[in-house]
Design a protein around this nucleic acid. Structure first.
Lengths: 136, 136
DNA sequence: CCATTTAAGTTATCACGATAACTAAATAGC
DNA sequence: GCTATTTAGTTATCGTGATAACTTAAATGG
């Protein structure tokens, strides 16, 4: 089907198909991850926030701005997500002592626990994905 | 960074990284496509709806149910999308003559035009993606 | 040192995905 | 042939992404 469309546009059907297949695989993988996280009271985004704080080598906290840059997400979305995580007691927010505009985000013990609980399943899903045959 | 997390979980870091890279590439590609379509008054979803009707070999119309199955999307999302496309005069909706519950969705001349206008750029973006080096 | 500009976060609003609950029509089964 | 169930589509609600506009604090610069 791609050929009939791509050829008149001067595009390479092989490349097009490759890109489409990749998007399809990624989309299916994302669905699986979403449903995995949803079953455990998180989401991909919330999970990423936790992991990014946890893996920080030198510090035990990050600013919202740091987090947004590391996971490449807009600040408003992060702001909303942090509010949810705080309500669920997975993080704590404190005012920055060096910058009156900023905050510091810490993992709670429960947050770290939840993260560690979900990591094996997360990696399992990622491994299966790359293991399986490429779907059409 | 993956190693430190994956090893204790008994996961293969290479596979994990492969899956993460694929998701990253797909995510960037989707962003480019979104911004391309947004600049032309469409969206990926709206574009897919148009293409699926246009490429139908035997018929000039499809039912919403057909469309939802072909592009693997939920019916409510499609319903909302079709309303928008109809408002923008890119499709027309008619009651089905064989099934009182169903509808037929037709492309308008403007819809077909818009589709053909956007196809080259769409394929161009997909080609570039597969052409470029794999980003980290 | 005060005014302007830049930066961090939040709120408001919108697009797009999902599921649940609903209406109405078609089909099954007795 | 009338009830049951199934199916098509819509509405309502929610989660998650974006941008624009706003508030407040920091940095710049005359």
């Amino acid at each position: 089907m791609v050929e009939a469309y791509a050829a008149p546009c001067g595009a390479d059907p092989v490349r097009i198909t490759g890109a489409l297949v990749m998007m399809r695989r990624a989309s299916l993988l994302i669905r699986r991850l979403d449903s995995y996280f949803a079953a455990h009271g998180l989401s991909q985004l919330r999970f990423l926030v936790l992991i990014v704080i946890d893996r920080e080598p030198e510090r035990r906290s990050l600013t919202p701005n740091d987090i947004a840059q590391r996971i490449d997400i807009s600040k408003p979305v992060l702001s909303r997500t942090l509010q949810g995580l705080e309500q669920d007691c997975l993080i704590t927010l404190a005012a920055s002592r060096t910058d009156g505009r900023s905050k510091e985000v810490f993992l709670t013990a429960e947050g770290r626990q939840r993260l560690n609980d979900l990591l094996p399943g997360y990696f399992g899903i990622l491994s299966e994905e790359t293991a399986g045959p490429a779907p059409d």
